[in-house]
Amino acid sequence: MVLWVFGYGSLVWNPGFEFDEKVIGFIKGYKRVFDLACIDHRGTPENPARTCTLEAHGGAICWGAAFCVRGGPEKEKFAMEYLERRECEYDQKTLVDFFTEGDTIMPMLTEVLVFTSTPDKISNKYYLGPAPLEEMASQIATASGPCGNNREYLFRLEKALNDIGHDDDSIIELANEVRKKLGLKGRPKEKKLEVPHIPLKSHIQPLHALPLAEAIALDS
């Protein structure tokens, strides 16, 4: 058996589980947003952190990394148990098509697992929803938890995306606003090359929502 998992947040730089292959690429129809609360890793119940999740958005693409776990059911089970504990604030699993830069029409992989969250404050207690940029920056600049402070999570994500060669302008904008709050120098925007339109032909199949597990102090 083979398990593929798509990482778009801290999994990009810190997967935390044993994997056999890592491939840089993207999924279609989603954008990265900082709309999810974290109360046990980078924040507390009294002062929750903001971490990223995915929001369905037509025409969008989200770059990240796909991780492959090979070696049979036991190895896959071990990886899934770890991920379900770590990603306990994400209440859904979704299967997506995964594309690489060399082939933007035909997916390299299908049925790649990604952890997502229900964008509803009633059914998902961790969902914060969108907020003005300045408000999000203030929250991220001050939140801290067992795994470190919230701003480190944001800055490490910004660097990880730069390291794989696919900056996210919304992440740079948010990170610069946090730096402004902290009195730090902002990162200049780099001139980007024009990217050809990538048609949406993925078949995204949502799976069942999972009950929220007890949180543990692992970065999400």
Rank of each mutant, 00 (worst) to 15 (best):
W4N: 08
G7F: 05
W13Q: 05
W13K: 05
F17M: 09
E18W: 02
E21K: 11
E21I: 00
I27W: 09
K28T: 01
K28L: 03
R32C: 02
D35R: 07
A37G: 00
A49P: 02
L54D: 14
L54N: 11
A56C: 09
G58W: 02
A60G: 02
W63Y: 14
F67N: 02
V69M: 10
R70I: 01
E74T: 15
E76L: 15
A79W: 03
A79L: 01
M80E: 03
E84W: 09
R85K: 11
R85G: 03
R86T: 04
E87S: 10
E89M: 15
D91V: 05
L95F: 04
F98R: 12
T100H: 12
T100C: 11
G102D: 09
G102I: 02
T104K: 13
P107R: 09
L109M: 13
T110P: 00
F115Q: 04
F115W: 10
T116M: 01
Y126F: 13
E134I: 08
E135Y: 00
A137V: 05
A137D: 03
S138G: 11
Q139E: 08
Q139L: 13
N149S: 12
N150F: 11
L154V: 01
L154M: 11
F155H: 02
R156T: 15
L157M: 11
L157R: 04
E158Y: 03
E158I: 00
E158D: 14
A160R: 07
L161W: 05
N162T: 07
N162S: 10
D163P: 03
I164Q: 11
G165V: 14
G165R: 02
I171D: 09
I172Q: 08
L174K: 01
K181V: 11
G183E: 05
G183S: 07
K189Q: 06
K191A: 10
K191C: 06
L193C: 04
V195D: 05
P196G: 09
P199I: 13
K201E: 15
P206N: 06
H208P: 00
L210K: 15
P211G: 10
E214Y: 11
A215N: 06
D219P: 04
S220T: 12
S220Y: 10
